[in-house]
């Protein structure tokens, strides 16, 4: 068991994995019945890639996403982030990881309603120990980066969905995370705004080198993803590389396999 990750790395020399899932199984108790949401998922995510996890609802997509994001622990198997086994972390270390290593983006934006756009972006930096002045400077800089330099002091209720999601993206970037986890980031947005958000994420992925992992069933994501992982019935159905997807899109019939 312990040897396998090493062989895995040896095969693909030069590739650095930021997240590695190994035989991840997750079972839930539903009443007296055991439901197996994930049934042995092994997945390595390369540093700097834009990965989309796709699948119908109930496929285990969200469960896998939660495992990768340190929001839930597997029943068996293990998840490594930066070669650290998540199961070994205590509550405080997990909080630290969520604060500094991972940035979260949600379907429902999840801005803290009682705080302004700028205060929302500042919060993770304050948690991380930055002084208020430093946090203000960086917060303004980030909000400008996502195109909201004019709306620093607006409350979430005074912003449109697309604007709220931009604030959320700025907040996710606050502590220079290595990974951004986006859960259906376009799920509550109209087509055009959704496209803009996807383009913004892609741009950040390219310019800042941040790894983006997104759970989605928005097919617009397919165009920008480096890889798409299809989940079905708690297993990885197939993994598509960007190049292969483009071929498939071009060729209507496609080639079997």
């Amino acid at each position: 068991m312990a040897v396998q990750p090493q062989t895995n790395q040896a095969v693909t020399t030069g590739t650095e994995y930021i997240v590695r899932c190994k035989d991840v199984v997750k079972e839930y108790m539903m009443g007296t019945q055991v439901v197996r949401a994930l049934n042995g998922v092994t997945l390595d995510i390369v540093r700097g890639e834009y990965l989309s996890i796709m699948g119908p609802s109930g496929s285990g997509k969200s469960t896998l996403f939660n495992m990768i994001g340190g929001l839930d622990k597997p029943t068996s198997g293990s998840v490594f982030i930066n070669d650290v086994d998540m199961a070994q972390l205590d509550a405080q270390e997990l909080a630290f990881l969520r604060c500094r290593t991972i940035g979260y983006i949600f379907q429902t934006f999840n801005l803290i309603p009682v705080m302004t756009a700028l205060e929302n972006v500042m919060l993770p930096m304050i948690f991380g120990g930055l002084s208020t002045d430093e946090a203000i400077d960086r917060g303004i800089e980030l909000l400008k980066l996502v195109g909201l330099g004019e709306r620093l002091h607006h409350k979430p209720s005074e912003l449109s969905g697309g604007q709220q999601q931009r604030v959320a993206i700025a907040r996710a970037l606050a502590n220079n995370p290595q990974i951004i986890l986006a859960d259906e980031p376009t799920g509550n947005l109209d087509l055009r705004t959704g496209k803009e958000i996807i383009e913004l994420l892609r741009q950040l992925n390219k310019e800042q080198g941040v790894t983006i992992i997104s759970a989605t069933h928005d097919l617009k994501m397919v165009d920008v993803s480096d890889r798409i992982v299809w989940i079905r019935d708690g297993r990885i159905d197939r993994v598509e590389e960007r190049a292969a997807v483009e071929v498939r899109v071009g060729d209507v019939e496609g080639t079997p396999g």
């Binding site: 405080q92 909080a95 999840n110 803290i112 993770p124 948690f127 991380g128 907040r171």
Partner: peptide, 16 residues
């Protein structure tokens, strides 16, 4: 619940 969960995602300890 959502606000509390979000704070935790941003790194809040239980004690916060």
């Amino acid at each position: 619940y959502k606000e509390i969960g979000t704070m935790k995602c941003l790194g809040a300890y239980d004690i916060f």
